[in-house]
Amino acid sequence: MSEEVVLKARIRARTGTSLVRRLRKEGDVPAVLYGAGKENLSIAVNHDLLFHSLEREEFFSQVITIDTDGKRERAILRDVQRHPHKTRILHADFQRIDENKPIHIALPIHYFGEDECLGVRIDGGMISHLMNEVEVTCLPKDLPEHIEMNVSELRLGQSLHLSDIQLPEGVQITAFTHGDIHEHDNAVVAVQATRVSAKSEVPDEQVGEEEAVADADTDTDADTGEEE
């Protein structure tokens, strides 16, 4: 479990386009705190504080404490709207959590063992990350910061699937709660052949045949030239 992250906020008593513009001009980001059977709460968060918090990967996948004028509520970040051309945050949505109810949240995948990967070091392949995050379901108290996958033993042509992920107790892959596990057991990472390694796997006999065909084509072209 990560350290508690506290985000200071203040209540926005009034809403509207002109007020939102004024907020942004003053260096704040309009946001909404919703869920857990309570009314939506319009809040404002300091832009720079939120901006730098968003630079941390774990901010997207951990429980945050929203301190609104002294009242603390636990929530997770659900959505962020950014300016299309400027490094500005325009809006944020935070969802309250119930400590006794499961949450669904996407966690980043951290791959390790890539330098020792047999499929790269011995087979000459290339590691391909097919997923960078995976959605899990768990109680807030069981939420890990990220998911880890060891790729050191992967050989060329092999892959690891969702079912290969080692999860902490109390954490489930959300996709597996929707039905047949095999139906949703997607590949997460694989070792694939590079162009160089793919060429090196062509049998010598086949290479010889291709060269013979090429020589025959050359001879045919030469004969055609003499007739002309």
Rank of each mutant, 00 (worst) to 15 (best):
M1R: 03
S2Q: 08
V6K: 02
R12W: 09
R12M: 12
L19G: 04
V20W: 01
R21N: 14
L23S: 13
D28T: 13
D28F: 15
L33I: 11
K38E: 14
E39G: 08
N40K: 00
S42K: 01
N46Y: 13
R56T: 15
D67R: 09
D69G: 10
K71A: 15
R72I: 05
R74D: 04
R82H: 12
R82I: 07
L90G: 05
A92T: 06
A92M: 05
D93H: 05
D93G: 09
Q95N: 01
R96V: 13
R96W: 08
I109S: 02
H110C: 01
D115F: 09
E116H: 12
L118D: 07
D123V: 08
D123Q: 09
M131G: 00
E133M: 02
L139Q: 05
P140W: 08
M149T: 00
N150Q: 07
S152I: 14
R155Q: 06
H161Y: 12
L162W: 05
D164E: 10
G179T: 07
E183K: 08
H184R: 05
N186I: 08
V196E: 09
S197N: 01
A198Y: 06
S200P: 09
E201I: 09
E201M: 15
P203G: 10
V207C: 07
E210W: 13
E211C: 07
A214I: 03
D215Q: 07
D217Q: 12
D221N: 11
A222D: 15
A222I: 14
E226A: 14
E227K: 12
